[in-house]
Computed example of a mutant assay.
Amino acid sequence: MKSRWSAFLVGLTAQIVFSATFLGLPAASILFQRALQLDMSELAVFLGSASIAVVVTEAPWGMAADRFGERRVLLAGIGITVLALTGLGIASSLSVTPPLWVLALLLFVAAGAGGAVTGPSGSAILGWFDARRHATLVTLRVASVPVGGALGTVAYAILLEALGVVGTFIAAASACALVGALVALLSFDPPRGHDSDGPPSGVLSDPRVWRVAITGFLLDVSQFLVLTFAATVLHQLFSVPVAVGLTWVTVMQLLGGALRVLAGVGTDFLPWLSRARVVRGLGLVQVMCLAPFLCGTALPVHLGIALMVIAGIAGCAWQGAHFSHMAILAGPGGAGAALGLNNTATSLGAFTAQVMAGTCVVAFDWPVTVLLLGALPAFLASLLFPGDSVERAPR
C-alpha cells in the first residue's frame, strides 16, 4: 500500500543501494584492477569516469526531478543504470578484455544515471511532510550515503571473491533492478503546487543558494583533506604508526556520522539550534583544531592527535544541517536543482582537496597545507553560510 512513509523508505533504500554500487568501487579498486587486468593509470581512468559522471549529472537530474517528479526521474535513472551495469558484466565476460574506453564509458553512463538517486529531489520530502520533519528526513537521506558506501565496500569484497567480476556487475544490476521495482510499486510524488510549474532553474538565481553551495565546496575541501591525509600527517609530524592513524580516521567517520544525524534532527526539535548555527559552529571547530598544526612538530603528540580527530568528527557532521538548509531554502519547487548543485559543489570540494594536497606539500609542507586546505576553507565557509530563513527562494 502506497503511503508517504513507504515512498520515503523506498527512496532511502534506493540511496543506500546506489551508494553501495558506486561508492564501494574505490575501496575494491585493487580487486577490479586484477580482474579487468588494468594498470594503475588505466584503473584511475576507469574509476575516475564514475566520479566525473556524478559531478556533471547531479544538477541536471535534480532539475529534472523538480520538473517531472522524483518518481519518473528515479525510474529513468535506475533503468539506464541497470542496462549499463549489465553491459559492464557482458563486456567483462568476453574472452578478450574490451578497450578501456568501453569499460570507462559504460561505468560513466551507469554512475551518471545513478545521479538520479544520489542527487534526489528534496521537493518530495518537503511536499510529503510538514516543516517540523524536514531537517530530520533530509538528514537521514544524506546520512544514508556513507552507510551505502560502507556496505558496498564489504559487498564488493565478498561478491568478487565468490562470483568474479562478471557476476559482481550482474549482481549490482539485479540489486538496482529490484530497487526500480520497489520505486514503481511504492513510490509516488506529492501534489505539485503552482510554483512547481515554472522553470526549476529559477531557484539558482537566488544568491543564498549559491552561498550554501560555495560553503559546501569549502567544507568538503577541509573534510577530505583530513579524511584522506590525517594518517599521513600524524605519521610524518608525530611518527604515529599508519595503522593507528587509519584507526583514528575510522573513529572520525563513525562519530562524525552519528553527530551528523543528531545535529540535523536537533534542528527540528530544539528551537535554539538553528541549521546556520550547526554549520557555522562545526566549521569554526575545524578552524580551531587545524590552525594549531601550523606549529608543526612543536605541537605535543597527544594534543595533535586529539585536535585532528575532533576536526575530523566536525568535518563529517555538518552535511545533515547543510543539505537540509539548502532544501528548505529552495522550497518544494526548486529543491531538486538546489540539492543537485550542492552535490556537485561538494564532489568538487573532495576532488580539489585530494588533487591540491600533493602540490601544496611539495611547495610548502604539511603544517602550511593543513592551514591552507583545512583551516582556511572552514573559516571562509563559517563566514559565508547564510542564516536560517522560513522564506522560500524566489523563483
Results as ranks from 00 to 15, higher is better:
10 V>G: 10
10 V>N: 14
15 Q>P: 06
16 I>T: 11
21 T>H: 11
42 E>R: 13
42 E>V: 07
43 L>Q: 11
44 A>L: 09
49 S>T: 12
54 V>A: 10
55 V>M: 14
60 P>V: 01
62 G>S: 09
68 F>Y: 09
72 R>W: 13
84 A>T: 04
84 A>L: 05
88 L>W: 09
93 S>Q: 03
100 L>R: 12
101 W>L: 06
115 G>S: 13
129 F>S: 03
130 D>R: 03
138 V>H: 06
141 R>A: 12
144 S>N: 05
162 A>Y: 13
164 G>L: 08
167 G>F: 06
167 G>K: 04
168 T>K: 07
183 V>C: 05
190 P>Y: 07
193 G>S: 12
193 G>T: 02
196 S>A: 15
198 G>Y: 11
200 P>W: 09
202 G>H: 12
208 R>K: 15
211 R>M: 11
211 R>I: 02
211 R>G: 09
220 D>Y: 14
222 S>Q: 02
227 L>R: 14
230 A>R: 00
233 V>T: 00
239 S>Q: 08
239 S>N: 05
242 V>T: 00
248 W>T: 00
259 L>I: 11
265 V>S: 03
269 F>I: 11
275 R>M: 08
276 A>G: 12
283 G>K: 07
285 V>N: 02
285 V>E: 05
305 I>A: 08
315 G>I: 04
322 H>Q: 12
327 A>C: 04
331 G>R: 01
338 A>D: 10
339 L>N: 07
349 G>D: 09
350 A>L: 13
351 F>G: 03
358 G>H: 12
375 A>Q: 06
379 F>Q: 00
383 L>R: 10
386 P>S: 01
388 D>Q: 02
392 R>Y: 08
393 A>I: 01
395 R>K: 08
